[in-house]
Measured scan of single mutants.
Amino acid sequence: MEVRTIKVFTTVDNINLHTQVVDMSMTYGQQFGPTYLDGADVTKIKPHNSHEGKTFYVLPNDDTLRVEAFEYYHTTDPSFLGRYMSALNHTKKWKYPQVNGLTSIKWADNNCYLATALLTLQQIELKFNPPALQDAYYRARAGEAANFCALILAYCNKTVGELGDVRETMSYLFQHANLDSCKRVLNVVCKTCGQQQTTLKGVEAVMYMGTLSYEQFKKGVQIPCTCGKQATKYLVQQESPFVMMSAPPAQYELKHGTFTCASEYTGNYQCGHYKHITSKETLYCIDGALLTKSSEYKGPITDVFYKENSYTTTIK
């Protein structure tokens, strides 16, 4: 009895394709271990004539594949690729409408935090270190965002349907971005203890939790000093293409032309909904596939993004 075979390709990165001759009487799992086709788990399936010449994702289970996976995804987590594939199996079914010149995501599976993050990423200057993220990001900007969303979920250790947080998501993504040249110098002034300067680099240099107003941050924000008295913390120097200011959701007025974009969060910790506000020729609110415009805006804002380049204080 002759062994019926077909020729397929296996890959971990969709760049390096490895030619395989597979036995049609055995499952993919018996031949390769966990195997995925377009995100779908085909591990328990036997090869079919229609699979001839198709590319299958496999887990990096030998040295060659491990090197290829690390170079593309910059992670050695053995569960990463499987999590990416199972997320992709959902995100490829989502709709990605162009809204006001940006790629958004039609609401499904509690994905409003991903839509808000995706919209924000198209408006701030950011370059990702893992080629996987950078490639998928370019495709997302062009309207094909399924891979990018699935990668975000995998890097953030999230599953489809789980509630997510924009600030946490951005923080994970910033860790995989090139923020080497970003720098922030802060000064804390206390009447009792004097003053202390701190220099922050990388992710810490672009994120701040405690106030939404970048102007206020430049002037000074009140913080408790270690001595128990009130101290003032203010920005001395900022070198970065953008800054992200966050605070627990509270009524906040966004003035046209003073910011790049913002995240609105309605609801409580267990259950809520994100919308995205962007400042173009007027203010726009993007909620999944829905767009509304207004000249002014007041609502429960939790993150505001500002364009920056270089700032030095005039406070002496």
Rank of each mutant, 00 (worst) to 15 (best):
V67I: 14
T292K: 15
H51L: 05
C149P: 02
V12K: 08
N147K: 14
A142C: 15
P78C: 10
P241E: 07
A117N: 04
K201L: 13
V58L: 09
V99W: 11
V21S: 15
Y265N: 04
G267D: 10
G101C: 05
T313H: 15
K54Y: 14
L119I: 07
Y265I: 00
G82E: 08
H90P: 04
Q237H: 14
T199P: 02
Y234Q: 08
S25M: 12
G39S: 14
G82R: 15
K44R: 12
Q98K: 11
A140I: 11
T35F: 11
M85P: 03
Y96R: 02
Y155T: 01
S295N: 07
I286Y: 10
C156M: 14
N111M: 03
F9D: 09
S181C: 13
Y208T: 08
I124L: 15
R66M: 12
L37V: 10
P97S: 07
T120E: 03
M26W: 08
G82F: 13
V243F: 03
G228D: 00
E308A: 07
Q237Y: 14
G299R: 06
H18I: 08
L59Q: 07
E215G: 06
M209T: 14
T260M: 15
G288S: 01
A117H: 03
Y269L: 15
D180F: 07
K183P: 02
L65F: 10
K307M: 10
K93R: 12
L212G: 03
F148K: 04
T103H: 03
M207G: 05
A231E: 00
T91H: 04
Y306V: 02
L254K: 02
H273E: 01
C271Y: 12
G53E: 14
H176S: 06
Y284R: 01
H256A: 13
A140F: 10
C261E: 00
T55R: 11
Y269A: 15
E68R: 07
T11C: 06
Y73K: 04
T11P: 05
Y155F: 05
K307Y: 10
C227L: 01
W94L: 04
N268W: 08
K7W: 11
Y252M: 14
K280I: 11
R66Y: 10
T19C: 08
T232I: 15
V189R: 09
Y208I: 09
G143L: 03
E162H: 01
T64E: 13
A108M: 07
Q270W: 06
S25H: 11
S50E: 12
E308D: 09
R83I: 05
R184E: 04
P300T: 11
K158Y: 03
L59D: 15
Y311V: 08
I45C: 13
M85W: 14
I286T: 03
M24H: 08
E168G: 09
L212F: 04
E125P: 11
L153K: 05
V12A: 07
D13K: 05
N110P: 04
N61V: 12
K127E: 12
Q196I: 10
Y57M: 14
D165K: 05
A262T: 00
G194P: 07
N268Q: 13
F80S: 02
L119E: 00
E71W: 06
S240I: 01
K95L: 14
L119V: 08
G299Y: 00
V304F: 02
Y311S: 08
T27G: 08
K95A: 15
S294V: 12
M207K: 08
Q197W: 07
V304H: 01
C225E: 05
A177N: 03
A247N: 07
G299A: 09
K158N: 02
Y311W: 11
L81T: 10
R139F: 08
D303R: 00
A142M: 13
T312Q: 10
K293V: 11
S279H: 05
R184Y: 00
L114A: 02
T278E: 06
H48R: 13
V8H: 06
D63S: 13
V21R: 12
E162R: 04
T11M: 06
T169N: 04
N178E: 15
S240V: 01
A132R: 04
E162A: 09
S246Q: 00
V12F: 06
M26V: 13
F80P: 02
M24V: 13
T19A: 11
T91A: 06
P131N: 00
L163S: 11
A87R: 02
N129H: 13
M245S: 00
H256G: 11
N187G: 11
G257V: 01
L151V: 02
L65R: 07
R66A: 14
L119F: 04
T266Q: 11
L133N: 00
F305D: 07
Y28T: 04
K255H: 10
A142N: 14
T103Y: 14
L200Y: 14
C149K: 02
N309M: 10
V304A: 00
K106F: 06
Q222T: 13
T35Y: 04
G202W: 00
